[in-house]
Design a protein around this nucleic acid. Sequence first.
DNA 1: ATGGCTGCAAGATGCAGA
Length: 259
Amino acid sequence: MRIVTYNVNSINARLPNLLRWLQETTPDVVCLQELKAPQEKFPEAAIREAGYGVIWHGQKSYNGVGILARNAEPTEIRRVLPGDPEDAHSRYIEATVNGVLIGCLYLPNGNPAPGPKFDYKLRWLERLRIHAAELFARETPVVLTGDYNVIPTERDVYKPERWVDDALFRVETREAFGRIMSQGWVDAVRTLHPDAQIFTFWDYFRNAYQRDAGLRIDHHLLNPAAARLLERAGVDREVRGWDKASDHAPVWIELGGSN
DNA sequence: ATGGCTGCAAGATGCAGA
């Protein structure tokens, strides 16, 4: 079972790329972030014609998340991260697919820091910690995946000293992320590739992709039942080099077992 | 330190992204 997280940076601007990538790699589950489309503007027909069941939570202009399942319908559990009834951003959606619980998240960027946006990011991380604790305890596989907008360590950024004051790499951010990890979650990509330099995002400026000036900010977190099934993990980094590409690349894991 | 690029909602430019 191949599960992928992909920040598409506009589902409609990226639709040709997305369909090509679906056809070439046939993932089983795809978690999308930054749909940048209101609920009614999601290209549902094209996704279904490609062979995928889908649920999504859109929003005008910004944010938006969705879960695709090949030859299956995701069973929705929730479309809001608990803990703040005032939060109107579409940043979380959760479903089960073939017995695996999938949490698809788009964590706030948080820049500029410090400031209200950074405060929102830290509150969101704390809400995620509380919800993650409940998910972690399940005896069935749980994959908490998405665009975390967190650079976990110095090896996950091309030039750490340039990012120390950025909301993605500030000490408060890494510590909040660390509190979630300390529940026992397995960072799938880093666990299988402990020494590799792996990036999942390259910004549009300064030929960042050509220079490989990237960040690793899209992550798959696995609970013990999921970690036991983990077989492979990687990044479809060539997709970042396609014409009209998102600034993120798809990040995938493969779980073994009956699926 | 700044700006470089991209998409959205606009119908010019400002916001947001990371």
